[in-house]
Design a binder for these strands. Structure first.
Lengths: 208, 208
DNA sequence: GTCTATATATGGATAGAC
DNA sequence: GTCTATCCATATATAGAC
């Protein structure tokens, strides 16, 4: 068992590693860089985590969203429209909050090899996306939504949010934002939520 | 000047390098692996390209789409609706055809640092996306489209196609496709085009 | 143009002192 | 728990033979 001070230090290292891995990728970052940025000795990484690989696994594991959480979050809403809107809000909030982390996730996704890491992430993401799919399918079944290509509608929702949060420099250019950090301002978060909801309202012919 | 046989060899190396870089990233791939896969001697990479970095630059440079080409391609269409549909077709075709390359591009985009490479790519992509933006803006001005959030509509179009082509393993799961290569079958290409056009038709209230 | 051999650097991991 | 020193593997790049 680790005491709370040790846990703090571990978390510090994980935070720093997450940021660096997200910016440049796993291979491009050395444990020397991580330990320098986290202001610890190089040997400490092996001491705490065993290896660079295992550190990476912990970075990924600790921040994956559970589908149980999403289900719990949306079940309080009555209509499928409100469930869907809740999902939009939640996904955009999480993606904005964890934008560093998202870079890691989608870089792993882009590798079409069957590593254990990619496998784990794919499974977890697919569980989450299934929740969205269920909501849309049920909405269609109960005549609340128009019949559409459900799978590609799910990918559309994810695609918009993902592209916005993981292609910061492009978002800056398209939206004419000077400072990259402003991309994640509340103002733009609201705008993205509004856009995505309007897109879904027309696409699914939702009567408000 | 290089003769055509030398050019062929260069192209071979570039093709192999593109595939490997796209699968694992620049740092994760050694010139040893590239030269082995391309069936050439390691020293040849330096001989032909100077360095690993310069090889990478050539891989990226040779396949960036020019906005002039897009403009030329769409100007033959009369209405803004048809121009927009032509863009959808073209983007999906190019993204499917160059899916390896897209991985490289969007991995570079995910790094929010000001490297020369990222800068170059951002500029070129932004030029291309501006063409889409112009079409939508003009369509709105000429009352062919409903007034919408143009910038985020552009990001939506890109986001859907990008997510589909660069997150193959997720696309497989969501669409229940067993073989990853089938994701790029004509059948799914058509389906994606259909979905995206329908999405835009309702979103922009296009009267067909 | 092509290859071998090698110089040089960098990174991950750990032994062992404190 | 923390640090230094070091081992070992692997990588890029190039000099020089053919």
């Amino acid at each position: 068992m680790v005491d709370s001070k040790t846990q703090d230090k571990r978390d510090d290292i994980l935070d720093v590693a997450e940021k660096l891995f997200s910016e440049k990728g796993f291979e491009a970052i050395s444990i020397r860089e991580i330990s320098k940025a986290a202001e610890i000795n190089i040997a400490m990484v092996s001491y705490y985590f065993g290896s660079k690989e295992k550190l990476y696994e912990e970075v990924v594991n600790r921040k994956l969203i559970s589908s149980e959480m999403i289900i719990k979050y949306i079940e309080q809403h009555e209509t499928y429209t409100n469930k869907l809107f809740a999902i939009v809000d939640m996904f955009i909030n999480k993606f904005f909050e964890r934008r560093d982390f998202q870079n890691i996730i989608f870089r792993e996704m882009a590798m079409n090899q069957r590593t254990g890491m990619a496998e784990l992430i794919t499974n977890r993401l697919h569980q989450n996306f299934s929740v969205i799919q269920d909501v849309i399918e049920n909405g269609i079944k109960h005549k609340e939504f128009k019949k559409v290509d459900v799978e590609l509608t799910v990918m559309t929702i994810i695609g918009v949010v993902k592209t916005y949060t993981t292609s910061c420099s492009i978002a800056c250019r398209v939206l004419k934002i000077d400072d990259p950090e402003k991309v994640y301002d509340d103002k733009y978060k609201k705008r993205l939520k509004k856009h995505l909801k309007e897109l879904l309202v027309t696409h699914l012919e939702i009567k408000l």
